[in-house]
Nucleic acid binder design. Structure first.
Length: 407
RNA sequence: GUGGCUAUGGUGUAACGGUUAACACUGGAGCUUGUGGAGCUCUCGAUCAGGGUUCGAUUCCCUGUAGCCACC
């Protein structure tokens, strides 16, 4: 028995909107779903019970960050991530592969320019030069075996391989975890996108093998492979075909896209994927993009945007995003969206604006709850619209209002 | 009361007598998509008042006003 069951309830055709249910050892969640991001085993400023109250069903934490702090052993000895952070629902961990990109991988400058330091240390590839990397603001560098990077916390040099990422994620113990991949810059040339996609394919195979080697983990955790390929449909499709053939429990679609490329990249990536397994679009979460993903058959999303924006005073509303730090909200005593009477909603915009200006801790907490509630509710509405066969109508009407705001 | 010192955006500081008075914070706005409680990009805003010297004064001189310090 697999640790993950996926039941489609509607829209079983590939490349079309679909609704379903994913069952994990820590409960189930409805799809399309948005995983709330809690990178360091916490959704910043929000309690697990508050997340439950606003309807969040699944969380995503980050392997890279937890590996650095407090270290996977601490989490493992606490009884795993669920016990450690007090969240008893479904949990995902990201593989750490994305940090290769987001920390600013050296490959954009050309790997060859990084020349050897730390001679004799076999654990560090000879092409890695922390000094040169740092000079360019780069903290990581990729080679075929894995990635070497310096901690953003203290500069310590570390090395991740697919096997190591799987090992750490086994210790963290999330219900779903991802294969170690390489996310490329949209500015990287085509031949590099191809090269990185092939590397991601090889890493996927190695991640899967490492997972299969741990029977105990295998019975409790589901592994998703990740499709890369940049903005090139042919590379995407080829990579998706290769990843789809492997025995993963589900699939992630990764990458850094420009807005226009999202649709075509998705179309190419999704077509080869089996219909009976969930597909997760990594890191995407603006309403427009969620609609785009769902329309093409994405089942899961995760995004920092609701909470990140919240911490800087930006709120989601049905009319679009608003910036509470704007002068006009100082005396705006109208309430935040009032939908189903959640505690935080009784506050006025003026009060929240005051909290932000005074840099009070509660500001980020309330705003995060507001934004998460907004986006989780949107996912719920999208799901219902699919089940009722009126997804496109809902998409059109929602975006008509949402866009018309014009901030 | 006497002497000395100081007066530049809201705040704190720059500017040999010489372009459009600079910088930081604040104020006004924008950016943020597998986290970044951060950061970045724009932007409003000032020479205490009045005289004088000079081709030209934030800068030098005088008076007033205000503040700080010291002394009866």
């Amino acid at each position: 028995m697999r640790p993950l069951q996926f039941k489609l309830e509607s829209g079983e055709r590939s490349g079309a909107p679909r609704a379903g249910l994913v069952e994990t050892p820590h409960g189930s969640f409805n799809t399309p779903a948005l995983a709330v991001v809690g990178t360091k085993a916490t959704v910043k400023g929000v309690l697990p019970k508050e997340l439950k109250a606003i309807g969040a069903e699944i969380l995503l934490a980050n392997t890279y960050h937890l590996f650095l702090q407090p270290g996977e052993a601490v989490v493992k000895d606490a009884g795993g991530l669920h016990a450690f952070m007090g969240w008893n629902g479904p949990l995902i961990t990201d593989s750490g592969g994305f940090q290769v990109f987001s920390l600013g991988a050296g490959f954009e400058k050309g790997v060859s320019k990084f020349v050897g330091v730390k001679e004799g240390d076999a654990s560090v590839p000879s092409v890695y030069d922390p000094d040169t990397a740092t000079e360019h603001g780069k903290l990581a560098i990729v080679d075929d075996e894995g990635v070497s990077f310096t901690s953003h916390l203290d500069g310590t040099l570390y090395r991740f391989t697919p096997e190591r990422s799987v090992e750490i994620q086994h210790d963290l113990g999330a219900d779903i975890f991802f294969a170690f991949d390489e996310c490329t810059s949209p500015h990287a040339p085509r031949e590099y996108q191809k090269e990185a996609a092939l590397r991601t394919e090889r890493w996927a195979k190695r991640s899967l093998s490492a997972h299969r080697a741990n029977i105990r983990a295998q019975s409790k955790q589901a592994l998703f492979g990740i499709v890369q390929g940049g903005r090139y449909p042919d590379i995407r499709a080829e990579n998706a075909r290769a990843i789809a053939e492997m025995d993963f429990d589900g699939f992630g679609i990764g990458g850094s896209f420009s807005k226009e490329d999202l649709g075509i990249a998705l179309e190419a990536a999704i077509e080869p994927l089996p219909d009976n397994k969930p597909r997760h679009l990594l890191g995407i979460g603006e309403p427009e993009d969620i609609f785009e993903g769902v329309s093409r058959g994405i089942d899961m999303f995760d995004c920092v945007q609701p909470t990140r924006l919240a911490r800087t005073g930006v709120l989601y509303t049905r009319q679009g995003k608003i910036n509470l730090l704007n002068e006009k909200y100082i005396r705006d005593y109208s309430p935040l969206d009032t939908e189903d009477g959640q505690d935080y909603e009784k506050f006025s915009k003026a009060y929240l604006a005051h909290l932000f200006r005074a840099r009070e801790m509660l500001a980020g907490s309330i705003a995060s709850l507001h934004n998460l509630h907004f986006i989780v509710s949107l996912m719920k509405d999208i799901r219902i619209s699919i089940l009722e066969g009126r997804f496109e109508e809902f998409r059109t009407s929602f975006l008509a209002t949402y866009r018309s705001a014009g901030t």
